[in-house]
Each structure stands twice: as C-alpha cells, then as structure tokens.
Amino acid sequence: TLFEALYDYEARTEDDLSFHKGEKFQILNSSEGDWWEVRSLTTGETGYIPSPYLAPV
C-alpha cells in the first residue's frame, strides 16, 4: 500500500525524512508506533516520518 503526505514536514533529527504535501511513500516498517520508516517515491530517500501526516493512496 502506498501512502501520500497530507502536510509538509521538516526533519528534526538525522533519522527523520523531510517531505512535501502530496509526496508518495512506500512503507518499510510501521511497527515502531507513530513513526514509520518509509522510502520516498519522489527522492528515493529513506527515513522516519510521523504516520499522522500520511493517508493511504
């Protein structure tokens, strides 16, 4: 399942991933609570992002 960003987000740590509203992601790991490890389909980068900022496509 692909997810889309509902809002912009600016990374706060080196493990976070900055992204823009509308960017699409592949979920790599969603078992860590509200922070999911994802791969951006736009940039190819991986990192953690807050799951409340995402919605299924």
Rank of each mutant, 00 (worst) to 15 (best):
Arg39Thr: 07
Phe25Pro: 00
Lys24Val: 14
Ser30Phe: 13
Gly22Lys: 03
His20Phe: 12
Arg12Met: 13
Glu14Leu: 12
Val38Met: 04
Gly47Cys: 04
Tyr9Thr: 01
Pro56Met: 09
Thr46His: 09
Ser30Asn: 13
Glu10Cys: 13
Glu10Val: 14
Tyr53Thr: 07
Ser31His: 09
Asp15Pro: 06
Val57Phe: 05
Pro56Ile: 08
Leu2His: 07
Gly33Phe: 09
Tyr53His: 09
Phe25Leu: 05
Val57His: 07
Glu10Asn: 10
Glu4Pro: 00
Tyr53Ile: 09
Asn29Leu: 05
Ala11Asn: 05
Ile27Ser: 02
Asn29Cys: 09
Gly44Val: 00
Gly33Ser: 12
Phe25Asp: 00
His20Arg: 14
Phe25Asn: 01
Glu10Lys: 11
Asp34Leu: 14
Thr42Met: 10
Ala55Ser: 11
Ser18Glu: 04
His20Asn: 10
Gly44Phe: 07
Glu45Ser: 09
Ala11Phe: 03
Tyr9Phe: 09
Trp35Asp: 04
Glu4Asn: 02
Gly47Ile: 03
Lys24Pro: 03
Val57Asn: 04
Tyr48Leu: 11
Trp36Leu: 07
Asn29Thr: 08
Glu45Arg: 14
Thr42Trp: 12
Tyr7Phe: 13
Ser18Gly: 07
Thr42Leu: 14
Thr43Asn: 06
Leu6Thr: 06
Tyr48Asn: 06
Ala11Ile: 02
Gly47Phe: 05
Lys24Ile: 15
Glu37Asn: 08
Leu17Phe: 14
Ser31Pro: 09
Thr13Val: 08
Asp8Glu: 06
Leu28Glu: 01
Thr46Gln: 09
Tyr53Met: 14
Gly33Glu: 11
Asp8Tyr: 03
Ala55Ile: 11
Glu14Arg: 11
Ala55Gly: 11
Ile49Met: 04
Gly44Asn: 07
Ser18Leu: 02
Leu28Pro: 00
Arg12Asp: 10
Tyr9Met: 04
Glu32Ile: 12
Ala55Lys: 13
Ser51Trp: 15
Thr46Ser: 09
Arg39Met: 11
Trp36Arg: 01
Pro52Tyr: 15
Asp34Cys: 15
Ala11Pro: 06
Ser51Glu: 05
Ser18Lys: 05
Phe19Met: 08
Tyr48Cys: 11
Gln26Tyr: 13
Pro52Gln: 15
Gly33Asp: 11
Thr13Gly: 15
Tyr53Leu: 14
Thr1Ile: 13
Phe19Trp: 05
Glu4His: 07
Pro50Gly: 05
Trp35Gly: 03
Phe19Asn: 00
Asp16Tyr: 13
Lys24Tyr: 13
Asp15Gly: 15
Val38Gln: 01
Arg12Leu: 13
Ser30Met: 14
Glu37Val: 12
Gly22Ala: 03
Glu10Ile: 13
Leu17Cys: 04
Phe25Lys: 01
Lys21Phe: 05
Leu6Glu: 04
Ile27Lys: 08
Ser51Ala: 14
Val38Thr: 01
Ser40Met: 05
Thr46Gly: 02
Asp16Leu: 11
Phe25Thr: 00
Val57Gly: 05
Pro50Met: 10
Leu17His: 03
Ser18Cys: 05
Ile49Cys: 07
Tyr9Lys: 03
Gly22Ser: 04
Leu2Met: 10
Gly22Ile: 00
Glu10Tyr: 10
Gly22Trp: 04
Gly44Leu: 06
Tyr7Lys: 08
Ile49Lys: 00
Gln26Ala: 09
Pro56Gln: 08
Trp35Val: 11
Gly47Met: 06
Ser40Arg: 13
Pro52Glu: 15
Ser51Met: 09
Asp8Ser: 08
Leu41Tyr: 05
Phe3Thr: 02
Thr43Trp: 01
Ser30Leu: 09
Lys24Arg: 14
Leu41Val: 09
Ser18Trp: 04
Thr43Pro: 00
Leu41Trp: 04
Thr46Lys: 09
Ile27Arg: 07
Val57Met: 08
Phe3Val: 07
Ala11Cys: 06
Glu32Tyr: 13
Asn29Lys: 08
Ser30Val: 11
Ala55Asp: 08
Ser18Ile: 04
Gly22Asp: 03
Ser30Ile: 09
Leu28Cys: 06
Ala5Glu: 01
Asp15Trp: 15
Val38Phe: 01
Thr42Lys: 13
Arg39Val: 09
Ser40Cys: 08
